[in-house]
Design a protein around this nucleic acid. Structure first.
Lengths: 137, 137
DNA sequence: CTTGACCCTGTACCTTGGTACAGGGTCTAT
DNA sequence: ATAGACCCTGTACCAAGGTACAGGGTCAAG
C-alpha cells in the first residue's frame, strides 16, 4: 500500500492540510513516520480516524471528547460500557437541548399569533420562554 | 426597591461581574444608571434578563442570537409586524436547531442500543459505526 | 480613620477549532 | 533544469465568549 501525503489524506477526508496538522498537534492523531524529505507518510487507517473525528463532531462531541473516545478505544482495560456511557451522557445533553428549544418554539409561535391578533404583549415576552426550570412545560 | 450592585446581580445569576460588564459591552444588556460614585445600579429585571441569557446559551444560541431574541418585543420604535417578522425568523432558526439535534439523538440512541456494553472496546459497535462514513443513513 | 471588600476603566490573556501566512525545501512533469 | 504544485516549521491571526490583571476610586465595619 502506497503511503499517502498529507494533501491526499486531507482531500480524501474533505478537510484542509492545516486541519490534519492541527489534529496532530492536539494529539488526536499520532505523528506519522516521515520520508527522506521529511514529508508525513500516512496509511489508510488515518483516513478512517479522521472520518471518525468528523463524524463524532457532527454528533456534538468536542475535540477533547473525541480524543478521549479514541484513547479509550486503544486502552485494553476499558470496555464497551465506557463508550456507551459517554454516548448516553451526550444523548441526555441533546435531549435537554431539544426540550428547551421546544419551549422557545412555543413562545415564539405564541408571540407571532398574539401579534397578529393585536393581543396584549408584556414588556419582554420572550423572557418567559426560558423561565425557571420546571415552572411550566 | 433597592438598586443592586453589579456584584449582587452577578452572584444571583451565578456569573462573574466581568461577565455582566462583558454583556453590557456586547449590547445584550443596556448600560444601567450610575450612582454618585459611578457604580452601576441594577433592578431585578436585569437578573431575569441575565438568567434568560444563561439558559439560551445552554440551548446553543450565540450571544448575537440571544440579543436578537431579546429584541423581539414592543417598544416605541417597533411595530407589530416587525416583531412578527423577527419572531418568524427566529422560529425557523429554532426549528432548524431542533432538527439537527433530533438527528444526533437518533444516531446516538441507535448506537447505544446496539452496544451491549459488555464487549471490549475493540469490538464496540459505537466506535465501529463512527468509523464508517454515513453507513447509508 | 483605617482596612478590606467592593467598584471603576482599560487592556491583556485564555480556550476552541481552526485558517493564513512567511520563508523555506521537495517533487514532478515538461 | 526549471516552473508549479506540493510539503515543512513556525508564528500570527480569526471569532466567540469570556477571565484576569493593573491601577485606580468607594463604601461600610470596627
Amino acid at each position: 500500500m502506497q503511503a499517502l501525503t498529507i494533501g491526499k489524506v486531507a482531500e480524501r477526508v474533505g478537510v484542509g492540510v492545516e486541519t490534519v496538522r492541527f489534529y496532530e498537534r492536539k494529539g488526536l492523531i499520532k505523528p506519522p513516520r516521515r520520508g527522506e524529505s521529511g514529508y508525513r507518510q500516512y496509511s489508510e487507517d488515518l483516513v478512517a480516524r479522521l472520518r471518525f473525528i468528523q463524524r463524532a463532531k457532527t454528533l456534538g462531541f468536542s475535540l477533547k471528547e473525541i480524543g478521549e473516545l479514541l484513547d479509550i478505544r486503544h486502552d485494553p482495560t476499558t470496555t464497551c460500557r465506557d463508550i456507551q456511557r459517554r454516548a448516553e451522557v451526550k444523548l441526555s445533553d441533546v435531549e435537554e437541548k431539544i426540550k428547551g428549544l421546544r419551549r422557545m418554539s412555543k413562545v415564539l409561535t405564541k408571540l407571532i399569533a398574539e401579534c397578529a391578533g393585536d393581543g396584549p404583549t408584556s414588556a419582554c415576552p420572550i423572557l418567559e420562554a426560558l423561565d425557571v426550570e420546571g415552572e411550566k412545560g
